[in-house]
Simulated scan of single mutants.
Amino acid sequence: MTLPLNTSANPSDPIAQARYNMIEQQIRPWNVLDADVLDLLAVVRREDFVPPAYRSMAFMDIEIPLLGGDAEEAVRQGHSMLQPRVEARILQDLRILPTDRVLEIGAGSGYMAALLAHRAERVVSLEIHPELADMARQNLRNAGVQNADVYQADGAQGAIPDGPFDVIVLSGSVAEVPAALLSHLKDGGRLGAIVGGEPVMRFTLTHRKGDRFETASPWDTIAPRLAHFPEPSGFTF
């Protein structure tokens, strides 16, 4: 999908100014320098993927709750949008191609799926929470995104539809790279996940090369857990 690109701010439009500030003050300084990614962030309306109660926070450097009730609990449970700079850095490092088929685990509000869909051939996004799956579908429809499908499914334990994939991205953290998901990568494909436990997590990029998998962990961050992925057992003395 091709969009007209415009990264300049409009001082008379506070939303446009806030979006510009997000890109220039949060995202670009975090080593997101890919011009195509920056342009995409300027035209995909993040505020349209944020619940109305938090719309004023759409461009803040925070994790935005997606479900009603207690905001801190929603973030703790992983029912939140990642920080804009984290989403942007993941998108940059995955290097999505126009021919790529992409699997996302954790649709949330559908924003990351929208970004991916503008660069890929097709996106399949799995969301375990029914209310969030409905939210993501509606947001994507409203945004006119036609090459992304959201399924209400458990990406940690259930069947994976429509694979294999060129790219798999986990929109949340896990204790370790999920071996089961690696089997759904095409040869030459890559999986991006935030791996580890607080206070140390790293974005880990795994490339499949035949029967081998090569990994790199280029940057640190913190993100809420995705549900049902294995956790390491504690030490016993």
Rank of each mutant, 00 (worst) to 15 (best):
I168D: 03
V174N: 04
W30H: 12
F229G: 06
P14Q: 10
R137S: 07
L38C: 12
A74C: 07
G210K: 08
P65H: 01
P14C: 11
L103S: 03
N31R: 13
R85Y: 12
G188H: 06
V124R: 02
I105Q: 03
V32S: 02
A179F: 00
V43T: 15
A148L: 05
Q157G: 13
Y54C: 01
M112P: 00
P178D: 09
R119E: 10
D36Y: 00
I90T: 03
M57D: 14
R225N: 10
P14I: 07
L185C: 08
G108W: 06
Q92R: 11
A16T: 14
A58C: 07
R212P: 00
M1H: 13
G234Y: 13
R101A: 15
I222C: 00
D149L: 13
E47V: 05
F49K: 00
N10E: 13
A227I: 11
L103K: 01
P178S: 08
T2I: 14
Y54E: 12
P52Y: 11
P161R: 11
G210D: 07
G144D: 10
A88H: 06
H118T: 05
A18V: 09
A148S: 10
A114F: 12
D149A: 10
T7G: 15
I168E: 04
T7Y: 00
R122Q: 15
A35G: 02
N10W: 08
V200R: 12
Q77R: 15
D149C: 04
A136G: 02
I160V: 15
H228I: 05
V43L: 01
G163I: 03
N6W: 12
V169L: 10
L126S: 06
D61E: 14
G210L: 11
G172W: 04
Q83N: 06
R45V: 03
E104W: 09
I62S: 12
P14W: 08
Q146G: 07
P161L: 10
E73S: 13
R122D: 06
S183W: 00
S173A: 15
I27T: 05
H207R: 13
A117N: 04
I62E: 15
R122K: 15
A114Q: 10
Q152A: 12
A180W: 00
F229P: 02
R208N: 02
R85S: 09
R202H: 12
V44E: 05
Y20C: 01
G196L: 05
W219F: 15
G188S: 08
G163V: 07
V75L: 07
A113N: 10
D100Y: 06
A216V: 14
R85W: 14
A71P: 04
L3D: 10
